[in-house]
């Protein structure tokens, strides 16, 4: 399949089930809501090294938040509910509770409950106050700035982690520009996050390594400088590859996000240095979700 001069390879992204939740973080200003959200979702690019994958889903207008202040929705994914229950209160406690004027609310109903205030209330050292209204409990934890307000818990959902596209460009700059265009489009899809820096991975990995104890290592088949030293997936005109990893609350969300990214890259076309779009997989035997690029774009 060739679209606007860009080859859509006959490949698929192989993705896995992950357990995730959404939180609504608010603050007096949109600036501080975003600072809390970005801090809270920092160092959460890959579950392999960070214990979770997290990112900003979208800004939430004040009229839609539980306290009527500007908000940011974040999504956090872990490999299982136990992991999620561990990372969520930890991250809120260190990054949201500490952030000026912030509050933190549940963004998903149903599923296994994940603690927010249920765990963080103890910071109040006995001075914490709960209010139970409309069958929902909130906690007020006195802090030096005033009060930190949060929901008792949030829900969870089984989502999809590890959707991805690879953008093969004729130069580093062109590959990055195409990836940035893709991220801009993909950010608009609700229910998804792109957990890597700026949404982009410049160091996609393969499973395993020649070194004992390494679970993942550089994906040498897509490394342009190694083209002459072994099997390669890169034609001669490709000088750089950028990957975008997608985690979503549903298969549809990841599929929609994948399509939005490919469409944005295709719009730039071969003239802007995009040679092909590919996807990372493990042969199809590891992950139950296969996002076939050509099917998505057909």
């Amino acid at each position: 399949m060739i679209l606007n001069g860009v080859e859509i390879r006959d490949s698929f992204a192989e993705a896995f089930p992950m357990v995730g939740t959404r939180l609504i973080i608010t603050a007096d200003t949109a600036k501080w809501a975003m600072i809390a959200a970005k801090t809270m979702t920092g160092f959460a690019t890959s579950v392999i090294g960070c214990g979770c994958e997290a990112g900003v889903e979208r800004e939430v207008p004040a009229a839609e938040t539980p306290d009527g202040r500007p908000g940011v929705a974040v999504l956090i994914f872990a490999m299982d509910i136990k992991g999620l229950k561990s990372v969520v209160p930890n991250r809120i406690g260190q990054c949201v509770l500490t952030s000026p004027t912030s509050a933190c609310f549940a963004g998903i109903e149903g599923g296994d409950a994940v603690s927010i205030g249920k765990a963080l209330r103890y910071f109040g050292d006995g001075w914490q106050i709960s209010k139970n209204v409309d069958d929902r409990r909130i906690w007020r934890v006195p802090v030096m700035e005033g009060e930190f307000v949060c929901d008792h818990e949030t829900g969870s959902v089984t989502g999809v982690g590890g959707g991805n596209i690879l953008i093969l460009g004729t130069s580093r700059g062109e590959a990055l520009a195409a990836a940035e265009a893709a991220v801009d489009a993909m950010d608009k899809v609700e229910g998804c996050i792109l957990p890597f820096p700026g949404g982009i991975v410049r160091s996609g990995s393969k499973v395993g390594s020649k070194y004992k104890g390494m679970f993942a290592s550089s994906n040498n088949a897509y490394c342009p400088t190694l083209r002459a030293q072994g099997p390669t997936q890169l034609p001669p005109e490709v000088a750089s590859v950028m990957e975008i990893v997608i985690d979503g609350v549903s298969e549809k969300a990841v599929s929609d996000c994948t399509r939005a990214g490919i469409e944005a890259v295709v719009k730039l076309g071969r003239d802007k240095g995009v040679v092909a779009i590919d996807a990372g997989n493990y042969g199809g035997n590891l992950g139950p979700f296969h996002f076939k690029l050509r099917e998505i774009m057909s």
């Binding site: 539980p66 306290d67 009527g68 202040r69 509050a103 209010k131 209204v133 409309d134 929902r136 909130i138 007020r140 005033g146 009060e147 307000v149």
Partner: peptide, 17 residues
């Protein structure tokens, strides 16, 4: 006197309040 975020939540979750 305090600016209580809790009040903003309560009035959005309870019509009566």
């Amino acid at each position: 006197e305090h600016d209580l975020i809790m009040l903003r939540v309560l009035v959005r979750r309870s019509q009566e309040l």
